[in-house]
Computed example of a mutant assay.
Amino acid sequence: MAYHQGYGGQGSKHRGRGPLVPPAPDPHQLFDDTSAGFPHAQGTPASGIDMGFNTLLADPMANVAVAYGSSIASQSKDIVHKEIHRFMSVNRLKYFFAVDTAYVTKKLALLLFPYAHQNWEVRYSRDTPLTPRQDINAPDLYIPSMAFITYILLAGIALGLQQRFSPEVLGMCASTAFVWVIIEVLALLLSLYLVTVQSDLTPFDLLAYSGYKYVGMILAVLGGLLFGSDGYYVALAWTSCALMYFLVSVRPNMDTYSNL
Rank of each mutant, 00 (worst) to 15 (best):
T128N: 11
T128R: 12
P129A: 03
L130R: 09
P132Y: 05
Q134K: 14
L141W: 00
L141F: 01
Y142I: 10
P144K: 01
P144I: 00
S145A: 14
S145I: 14
M146G: 07
T150D: 07
A155G: 09
G156W: 04
A158I: 02
A158E: 14
G160H: 14
L161A: 08
Q162S: 10
Q162G: 09
Q163D: 14
Q163E: 13
F165W: 10
L170S: 06
L170D: 02
L170I: 00
L170A: 08
C173M: 06
A174G: 12
S175D: 14
S175Q: 14
T176D: 12
F178V: 11
V179Y: 14
W180Y: 12
W180V: 09
V181E: 11
V181L: 08
V185P: 13
L186V: 15
L188Y: 09
L190C: 09
S191V: 15
L192W: 11
L194G: 08
S199R: 05
D200R: 13
D200P: 10
L201E: 00
P203G: 04
D205Q: 02
L206W: 02
L207I: 02
S210H: 10
S210N: 12
S210G: 13
G211T: 03
G211A: 04
Y212W: 04
Y212K: 03
Y212V: 01
Y214M: 06
V215W: 00
G216K: 04
L219C: 11
V221R: 13
V221P: 00
